[in-house]
Design a protein around this nucleic acid. Structure first.
Length: 373
RNA sequence: GUGGGUGUAGCUCAGCUGGCAGAGCACCGGGUUGUGGCCCCGGCGGCCGCGGGUUCAAACCCCGUCACUCACC
């Protein structure tokens, strides 16, 4: 994997980079749509690409449970299995074990847990996580970590950071695919010194990239900003920084300013399925009655497939009637919004007008809210 | 025609021995951050079929009446 810094913002920590993988390259800052079960829900790979996606995220935990990483490997790996030729990043399963599975038991060896699908018993440790991701054949793989809940007391988080560091070194020691890049995940809860400890330990080991984990677990935005700012200070400039699970457009923008390069979040796709659409002037809840006969597109300035062909009235109708097409059309729009947003951010960084872009972003949103009232 | 059952929110229905009219769905609005198309929160909404009676107090008890429905003739 190659990571090249193309442009560095003079006034912020933001930068534009190009990352090259075995399945092509992409520019950062980048947003990765979430394709948990080897599919970005409701979209075909072609639609995903047309909507602007250049790298997606898939989940080790889910694919391990179903259909099984062995099946995926036998069918030629994740790319061939799902017909997506561009880069794929796989999560290690650490977070899912934390958020989805019921009973779980954490030891130094790994995590014993029960499947959220059928309650069956399983075990994943750092070695297993790497082996599974090797079978999947993703381009960027993640170290197995323990994500602690929020809030958590200091002693617990301290032990957890030590465990995550231990696991990280074992992930490095396990044989992965030759072209696979491995990222370490910084933990440490909301404690500045533990974040520092975690970051330094991982950097010492030397990963291809560094992720900020354990965020977007219920903390407020200011706390998250603080942690991002403090943690990135300990990460090497020449490696990609990935903020896991974030987030709203405004969260992403603020994090880019603090030097984050990569993002993933279920928000655009989940909200699409639940009737909330992102626009240049804020969010639009398509199920609202006010759109019943609104002939305008979702976002006047958007050139996505959905906005090019369909009215708010039609999308609302599909939503209210529970028609399947609405999942697809809404998802196309929201993914397009996010990827376009990242395009705009990269251009703003290059042109040294990121702060102006930021101001306009909030101004447009404010203006949009006033129109609604 | 005879006998029985049922009438309560837009829909399906709870509502005890008489004591402030309830739920689910629908509708309206809000939420959703390393995904279970899930889910969570809030809101609007009543001539308790109609008319009388008993009672301090009736959706509930009594009388009448109307509608729907089932069985038999």
């Amino acid at each position: 994997m190659k990571f090249e810094i193309l442009y560095k913002s003079a006034s912020t920590r933001a930068r534009v980079c190009e990352m090259e993988t075995a399945h092509g390259s992409f520019m950062t800052p980048v947003f990765m749509p979430v394709g948990t079960q080897a599919t970005v829900k409701a979209l075909s790979p072609e639609e995903l690409e047309d909507a602007g996606a250049r790298i997606i995220l898939a989940n080790t935990y889910h694919l391990y449970l179903r259909p099984g990483h062995g099946v995926v490997e036998k069918l030629g790996g994740l790319h061939r299995f799902m017909h997506w030729d561009r880069p794929i990043l796989t999560d290690s399963g650490g977070f899912q074990v934390y958020s989805l599975s019921g009973l779980r038991k954490i030891t130094e060896k790994g995590v014993a847990f029960q499947s959220h699908i059928d309650g069956s018993s399983h075990f994943i440790g750092p070695e297993e996580a790497i082996r599974i991701q090797k079978s999947l054949g993703s381009d960027i793989i993640m170290a197995f970590d323990e994500c602690v809940s929020y809030p958590a007391d200091y002693k617990y988080v301290l032990d957890s950071v030590r465990l995550t560091s231990l696991w990280a070194s074992r992930c490095l020691g396990e044989k992965r695919g030759e072209t696979q890049a491995l990222f370490g995940i910084v933990q440490g809860g909301m404690y500045s010194d533990l974040r520092e400890m975690s970051a330094k330990a991982l950097v010492e080991m030397g990963f291809d990239g560094y992720a900020l984990g354990g965020l977007s677990v219920g903390e407020d935005a200011d706390t998250r900003q603080r942690i991002i700012k403090e943690t990135t200070a300990f990460l090497p400039e020449d490696k990609p920084v990935y903020l896991m699970g974030v987030g709203k457009p405004e969260d992403i923008l603020e994090a880019v300013i603090l030097g984050v390069d990569m993002f993933d979040c279920v928000m655009p796709t989940r909200n699409a399925r639940n009737g909330t659409l992102f626009t240049s002037t804020g969010r639009l809840v398509i199920k609202n009655a006010q759109y019943i006969d609104d002939e305008r597109p979702v976002d006047e300035g958007c050139d996505c497939y959905t906005c090019s062909h369909f009215s708010r009235a039609y999308l609302r109708h599909l939503y209210m009637a529970n028609e399947l097409l609405v999942y697809r059309l809404n998802s196309i729009h929201n993914i397009h919004y996010y990827t376009r947003f990242m395009d705009d951010i990269r251009n703003a960084i290059r042109d040294e007008r990121l702060e102006e872009f930021r101001e306009n972003f909030y101004k447009r949103r404010e203006a949009g809210n006033q129109i609604v009232e």
